[in-house]
């Protein structure tokens, strides 16, 4: 890897030496925030991007395997009508031995309503077919990629590739949720599904992330969508043409944010209102048509939906 040349301006050096608080100065590359420190010079590191490689490889596979959901006359893709693809949902509520994490049917139905509202303009509707409740202290605090996650999913998962299993628990590590991609199902079927923080559900305690959009976001992954900031400003990004490129995640609701201003992906403001960014629940409210089409094709190809 070529070492990145970093330079710090005189002003920054002065602040480093003279100011007591905050005393930590920064020089950064990659320009995740072009405006973050106007005194620092930025340079992108020249190494390859492993997850870019992985995403590109998955895309090649997808192109080779893809189905044609709409069965267009020319063999091309035709979007399926809104609401025409019904997804069965198994909702697994995980509590601790003191019943923390318990959810009423009203709370689960409220979450399902948020999910269906978010996908109203897409082919997908979500049909709650079963709810389970399991008291398990280890699973209640389940972490990403842990033995507890493996045990929980092995014990509880229902259905096939097209069945959405949702696990609501008090997950750790500052995560609101995680999900598996459609292309992962074949190699790890038991791992398939979506895990969310219980308090991210509507009315939960995880403000500003408590309007239920974490499930919407994670189901987006489950249907094959990447983050809007996938790939940063370069390359193919999230493989969706109508979501402007974004250099890095946005938080809060930074109206007017424009983090990619140079090169072929410079057009458009950052898609901060998109469900696949990291902004507050109150800020995110939409999928693009391109995302709907990608989810349609991905779910048809890998999930048989």
């Amino acid at each position: 890897m070529k070492k990145t040349a970093l330079s710090v301006s005189i002003k920054t050096v002065l602040s480093l030496c003279l100011l007591a608080s905050p005393g930590v100065a920064l020089a950064q590359s990659g320009a995740a925030m072009d405006n973050a420190n106007n005194n620092a010079k930025f340079k992108r590191c020249g190494t390859k991007h492993p997850s870019i490689q992985e995403a590109a490889l998955k895309e090649q596979h997808f192109t080779a395997m893809r189905g044609k959901p709409g069965g267009g006359d020319d063999g091309g893709y035709t979007p399926r009508p809104a609401g025409s693809v019904s997804v069965d949902v198994h909702f697994h509520v995980i509590t601790d031995s003191s019943n923390n994490g318990a959810l009423s049917s009203g709370e689960i139905n409220s979450q399902m309503a948020v999910l269906n509202d978010a996908y109203a303009g897409t082919p997908f509707t979500f049909n709650l077919v079963a709810t389970t409740v399991t008291a398990n202290n280890a699973w209640y605090n389940v972490g990403y990629n842990t033995s507890a996650e493996q045990q929980m999913k092995t014990a509880l998962r229902q259905g096939d590739a097209g069945t959405l299993n949702i696990y609501a628990a008090n997950i750790g590590d500052g995560l609101l949720g995680w999900a598996t991609f459609p292309s992962s199902y074949a190699s790890a079927p038991l791992d398939d599904g979506v895990v969310i923080l219980t308090d991210s559900m509507p009315g939960g305690d995880a403000a500003p992330y408590n309007e239920g959009d974490t499930l919407t976001h994670e189901v987006g992954h489950w249907l094959g969508l990447y983050h809007t900031f996938q790939g940063g400003c370069s390359g193919s990004g999230d493989y969706v043409a109508d979501t402007p490129a974004e250099k890095s995640p946005a938080y809060g609701c930074p109206v007017g944010r424009d983090s990619c201003t140079k090169g072929k992906n410079a057009a458009g403001l950052d898609p901060i209102t998109n469900f696949m960014d990291y902004t507050d629940d109150s800020c995110m409210y939409e999928f693009s048509e391109g995302q709907s089409a990608r989810a349609d094709e991905q779910s048809n190809t890998y999930r048989g939906l």
């Binding site: 990145t4 480093l16 590359s29 990659g30 590191c45 991007h49 997850s51 900031f229 940063g232 995640p249």
Partner: peptide
């Protein structure tokens, strides 16, 4: 001085400096 390969496919690097090591690790 540190560098990171992000999960969303970018390479980033930065240098953090302080008047003391305690300031940095804070």
């Amino acid at each position: 001085d540190l560098a990171i390969e992000t999960d969303y496919g970018t390479s980033e690097s930065m240098t953090m400096a302080g008047a003391s090591w305690e300031e940095v690790i804070a």
